[in-house]
Design a protein around this nucleic acid. Structure first.
Lengths: 348, 348
DNA sequence: TTGTATGCGTTATCAA
DNA sequence: TTGATAACGCATACAA
């Protein structure tokens, strides 16, 4: 089907090496005669030559491919991240291969394995979390690797993520400032970096304000919308329901909205809602959601820069970068007065 | 860094072929002694052996990789599609490599080139449209290929997409039935399959209803939200503005919503809105959008099935499959009486 | 039951 | 200015 250097060599009568030099070298440096160059190029075109990257990769021990691993490609946060990463990588002449782990650590492990087998030049990983032995192995095998968004505090690996604790502080402090004290937190997948740090910020904000932590108000167990839906329904049945909900991710917030709609709960008048993540559609929702925005563009730029650096200098000290989140105040939070609280409670 | 079959052979004292057979063959068929098998497997584990897929691909002339090309990975419709395709492909033992063309035909061409160079076993392409010489070349080079969602009527290639004409008919007929006659259409990228077929359905619905086509009501030029935003603002300035807008894609609808919000236009009381595409968040928008749903799951299943079939039987006749769209009626369309129309016009 | 030899397509080294 | 050759890691036909 596809022709090879050899085919071109045969057709033109020059050697394979000459053909290779003309087509892939900065061929001037070998002083190939203009005539030969043209003959070769012409033949290449006629034969529809396409380099075989498998052969090149095998020979060069370098593939110009970067592996990307994300927990959910359909989550708007991650698809935006992938798009942004793709652009950054292309600038450096790299292609990329994405794996979607579906928030499943065993799929993540097999993704890492596949990428190793493909001999990618590096990896950028947003890990499910929970466990990192497979990533440790990568590092020990000297594979250049950067963790993005989902990291491990206790693992010495280059990483860039948003300051999740601070993000939660922003969100919960905002609610507290508006008079809320019964604030529920709908978690993502427990044991993951994103979740634990966000939970930590939630607790810290309450503690700092002298509000006790009610474990019944900490619910949920994954980042999908169904989780938000179910847990919100559950929370609404509480004899003394929360006046506000803080969700650990955008999809969870979507599910919460659906549950509220079903129960005729209006936001923000009946219930306030703030969410981590801030994808494009947040501001079109009903109502526009107050949300914590992560600087995706900056995150991907830094991740790629760190990866390139690691590829050049395998032994540099490793860095952990924490980016600043941002609170976008919109219309999903209402100010709560003591009066309204009492009214609510007596109404239940 | 990573060990090879040779390393294992050296360590165990058997030949490379034996090692290969133990690790990758259904090794019983060569009757390798149990003892050898165990020695080899043990050594492989100790040395951390990982097959080199570059070498295997080169030798086998088969990579078990499928190339995917989409116009916009961050568009919820396509990210859902990718996720679904990934699942289907994995079932068959295939991996995949995605390219995002950013709705740019020249990027699409270079993506096709890259995938050829990687020697993927097949491709699934949602093309930008506009032009198809590069795809024709692929077909002529006997690369198994299936077009998905974005096809070419005039190109003899396996393809699966939704019946866009019918989708537009559903949408516009719904608006007409509710009393609308001044219905604007905000297009996507002109010249693309998705856009032209959707436009065709729009026109046909109006013609069928005996409503003249007002070219001033056909606006816009790409599938992004900014387009929807700008064109909606423009439409609202019209001396006799439309009473309804039909958008060619979900992102366009998002932009339209933003423009309406800015101008204090309430939907559906001031303006009705229907959109093609129906991503997860449509029902959480303000208001919930009436939308045309495409059967993504079915589409991807069929695409993968067709691709496998083409890989097995390169010379089967080619098929073009058209799937049925579905109108999801929600709350973004209002019934228009003659009276309300008059009121509106005199109010302007 | 196992080993030897060859080739997949490329590039780098050495030689001419 | 160009060519011959070896090697990257693997799988297989053929031999033993």
């Amino acid at each position: 089907m596809s022709s090879t250097l050899k085919d071109i060599a045969n057709k033109t009568g020059v050697s394979v090496s000459t053909v290779s030099r003309v087509l892939h070298d900065n061929s001037k440096k070998y002083k190939i005669s203009d005539e030969t160059q043209e003959r070769v190029k012409k033949a290449a075109k006629e034969l529809g030559y396409r380099i075989n990257t498998l052969a090149r990769g095998l020979r060069l021990q370098k593939t110009y491919e970067i592996g990307l691993i994300v927990p959910d490609i359909a989550n708007p946060f991650f698809s935006a991240m992938i798009k942004s990463l793709a652009g950054e990588l292309r600038k450096g002449g790299y292609n990329f291969i994405v794996y979607d782990t579906d928030e499943d650590i065993s799929i993540e492990k097999s993704a890492v394995k596949s990428l190793m087998e493909k001999r990618v030049d590096g990896m950028i990983i947003a890990s499910v979390g929970q466990e990192f032995s497979h990533i440790q192995k990568l590092r020990d095998a000297n594979v250049p690797i950067v963790m993005i968004d989902r990291c491990f505090d206790s693992l010495d690996i280059d990483s860039v993520s948003v300051d999740n604790v601070k993000g939660s502080l922003f969100a919960v402090n905002h609610l507290i400032k508006e008079g809320h004290t019964r604030i529920a937190f709908i978690q993502g997948l427990p044991g993951t970096y994103a979740n634990e740090t966000r939970l930590q910020g939630y607790k810290q904000a309450l503690n700092d304000a002298g509000i006790g932590i009610d474990e019944h108000l900490i619910v949920g167990d994954d980042f999908r919308s169904l989780n938000g839906y179910l847990e919100t329904k559950h929370l609404l049945k509480n004899p003394v329901p929360p006046t506000a909900i803080f969700t650990a991710g955008d999809l969870i917030a979507l599910g919460a909205l659906e549950a509220c709609r079903e129960h005729g709960i209006r936001i923000p008048s009946d219930l306030s809602l703030v969410t981590f993540d801030d994808p494009v559609f947040t501001s079109y929702l009903s109502p526009a959601l107050t949300a914590i925005e992560q600087p995706i563009q900056k995150m991907t730029e830094m991740a790629v820069a760190m990866l390139y650096r690691r590829m050049r200098n395998p032994d540099d000290e490793r860095r952990k970068i924490l980016l600043e989140p941002k609170l976008n105040v919109r219309s999903s939070v209402t100010r709560l007065t003591t009066l309204t609280t009492i009214t609510r409670i007596t109404n239940q």
